[in-house]
Design a protein around this nucleic acid. Structure first.
Length: 281
DNA sequence: CGCCAGGCTTCTA
DNA sequence: TAGAAGCATGGC
């Protein structure tokens, strides 16, 4: 458990004793697309229809305007604060390469994102860059998500499934619009159930996801890791491909396997932001 | 103008 | 069954 206590301070919920936690590392590492910086150490975003500004001050997190119950039922889970990253680092740190990546961003964590949002986000991510992905996801929510007053919820599968292809034109997401519709229609119709993907054996979970048009091996792996917390899953994009070729020519060490997806997140952030990362090793 | 971006589908040999 | 071409869009 990587927090100590949560209590109210005026209108805000305050989470104290947070460890292994950096908002900027977590929200700026390409695993999520709906958080925007709003000043020093503050970010504003929407999860499960709740729009909040979150501020980190050392080992304290402030959820502005949030109730205690919301932090306990939503945000602790979203930031995966029940997980002991001390133990995560103890395991992953047994490998020197991963140890260096962890040292580069010790506050990194893998979020537990809503599965449907993760599925859509990473369908939109294919052959695309992060800045543009963020723009497309933002337009998706503004166009078709519920207006909560403070922000826009992520649109439901049912809402998207009822649309025609040409109605997605304002998203300017190119050929991915058809993929998004296919995913929405499979989920809305019940042809693809998301809940079993938490526990199904990974080969079967992968098979089901890759039946969706526009979902190949990499996107499926992202959805399982970021949407279903399947920490064994390792999305391999061009960056991770380069990192594995340079740093793990023999493959990822077996001891890391249960948390290989978390190792991947440290590595991804490391090689994308640190020019020296790919040289020694 | 070409190249690239957290790839995938489709065509071809 | 492996490998290349084509794909919307936008920043550089």
């Amino acid at each position: 458990m990587d927090y100590r206590a949560v209590h109210m301070r005026g209108e805000d919920a305050v989470l104290e004793g947070v460890r292994h936690f950096s908002l900027s590392e977590i929200l700026g590492c390409g695993q999520c697309f709906r958080w925007n910086p709003v000043g020093e150490n503050s970010y504003r975003g929407t999860v499960e229809g709740k729009t909040r500004t979150v501020t980190q001050q050392g080992d304290t997190l402030i959820f502005h305007g949030a109730a205690l119950e919301e932090v306990e039922s939503l945000w602790l889970h979203y930031f995966d604060l029940p997980r002991d990253y001390g133990a995560v680092k103890a395991l992953l740190g047994r490998d020197p390469v991963t140890a260096r990546a962890i040292a580069y961003a010790p506050g990194m964590r893998v979020l537990r994102q809503p599965p449907w949002e993760a599925l859509c986000s990473f369908i939109l991510s294919s052959n695309n860059n992060i800045v543009r992905i963020r723009g497309i996801v933002d337009r998706l929510c503004r166009c078709f998500g519920e207006d909560t007053g403070a922000g826009y919820a992520f649109p439901t599968p049912e809402r998207l499934a009822a649309l025609d292809l040409d109605e997605l034109e304002p998203l300017r997401c190119g050929y991915r619009a058809a993929y998004l519709l296919d995913a929405a229609r499979r989920v809305a119709s019940g042809a693809l159930e998301l809940e079993p993907l938490y526990t199904l054996p990974l080969p079967e979970a992968r098979r089901r996801l890759t039946e969706i048009k526009g979902v190949g091996p990499k996107v499926a792996e992202c959805v399982l890791l970021y949407g279903f917390s399947r920490t064994e899953c390792v999305p391999v994009d061009v960056w991770i491909r380069r990192a594995l070729d340079h740093l793990y020519p023999q493959g990822i060490p077996g001891v890391l396997a249960p948390l290989a997806g978390l190792a991947q997140q440290y590595l991804f952030h490391y090689v994308r932001n640190c020019p020296e990362a790919l040289r020694a090793g």
